[in-house]
């Protein structure tokens, strides 16, 4: 595979999820009904992953994902593949749409690779571009499951962290360069104790990991916990910024932020495609705020793109890539 050179300034990337395209949705249903097994499931989903990667390549994204095509839900996917969980009873997600909120009923443990096959397949069709390994973080796994076994959040989150670390180690052995942990649940409880609980878990997830270590956090009031998360053992925070009007920028400045930033410039809730100028302005804004240099800035959407129509997701990414290219000329 020819090496691909990720731009030194403003590399573009994605948070992870992409609209389900191709046979992915059907494959998820077939697996759920027992019609197909795990192996067949991932085999069928390859076509979807390939289509996602093609969209990224078309848009010109530098660091890719597998589009999370096999993940019906970011917590359930992992819970179904770890020891200690059982399928839960039905809980509402919205309207009359329900999911089986997983329940912890025993000691959490890693069994075998959970996401590596999809990730490796994405790498094989990425034309040399790096593909992030993306996992649901221990805090989000903790918060969005029920627990009937531990009765102690700290013990549970630390075991979740250990299990996720096993997955990461397996990926590192296969050459993973970027490892991202998604923690959308953190900002829903923006309290010091919670931020510190996650720090302890992330020490397990990331200690000594030689790849780029990223945590994605989105929405909510991050400024409340910013001082505590800056201590996390990560290289990069990937942050939703566009949707909240870049409100966080002065806070980053205030706390002397100097890690890399995954800078969310695309609103994933809006069907309105951001123009190149709009995205470029957002990048200029970060540069003018004088927080970190352009080699520490990764340009990406606020969050996963899964709720957007594919056409809109593609267009948004393309404009984002073009804006990053223009920014490279200027900064």
């Amino acid at each position: 595979m020819p090496g691909y050179e990720v731009p030194r300034k403003f590399p573009t990337t994605v948070v992870g999820s992409y609209p389900k395209i191709g046979p992915a949705d059907k494959a998820i249903k077939m697996r759920r009904s027992g019609e197909i097994g795990e192996e067949e499931f991932h085999r069928i989903a390859r076509e979807s992953i390939r289509m996602v990667v093609e969209d990224y390549l078309w848009a010109g994204v530098d660091i890719l994902s597998d589009g999370e095509q096999t993940r019906e839900d970011m917590v359930v996917y992992f819970a179904e593949r770890m020891d200690g969980y059982r399928e839960g009873d039905w809980v509402r997600v919205f309207d009359n749409v329900y999911f089986r909120k997983p329940v912890v009923v025993g000691r959490i443990g890693w069994r075998q690779p959970m996401i590596l096959e999809d990730w490796e397949y994405a790498r094989s069709v990425a034309q040399g571009r790096p593909v992030k390994l993306i996992l649901t973080g221990p805090y989000t796994m903790l918060e969005w499951s029920f627990d009937l076994h531990y009765g102690d959040r700290r013990e549970l989150i630390l075991d979740l962290a250990r299990a996720l670390r096993r997955e990461i180690d397996a990926a590192l052995a296969r050459g993973a360069e970027y490892v991202q942990v998604d923690e959308p649940a953190l900002s829903t409880r923006p309290f010091r104790e919670e931020a510190e609980l996650l720090k302890e878990a992330l020490d397990i997830v990331f200690r000594g990991v030689g790849a780029k270590r990223i945590v994605h956090i989105c929405y909510g009031e991050l400024e409340r916990i910013l001082p505590y998360i800056l201590e996390y053992p990560v290289d990069q925070f990937d942050l939703e910024m566009k949707n909240s009007g870049f409100r966080l920028l002065p806070h980053l400045k205030e706390y002397g932020y100097d890690k890399e930033i995954g800078y969310g410039v695309i609103d994933v809730h809006s069907f309105q495609v951001e123009s190149v100028e709009e995205v470029k302005e957002a990048i200029d804004r970060l540069m003018k705020a004088d927080i970190v240099g352009p080699e520490k800035v990764y340009i990406d959407p606020d969050c996963g793109l899964k709720r957007l129509p594919r056409e809109i997701a593609r267009e948004k990414l393309r404009n984002m890539v073009e804006a990053a290219r223009l920014a490279r000329e200027e900064w």
Partner: peptide, 29 residues
């Protein structure tokens, strides 16, 4: 479907639109 829905559906000049997380729950209104 959520606490606002019956009114958002019954009253004129208001309609239920996109989904948003309901506080810190994994539930969307």
């Amino acid at each position: 479907h959520d606490i606002f829905r019956p009114y958002a559906e019954a009253w004129r000049n208001v309609t239920p639109t996109g989904l948003l997380r309901y506080f810190d729950n994994n539930f969307f209104y």
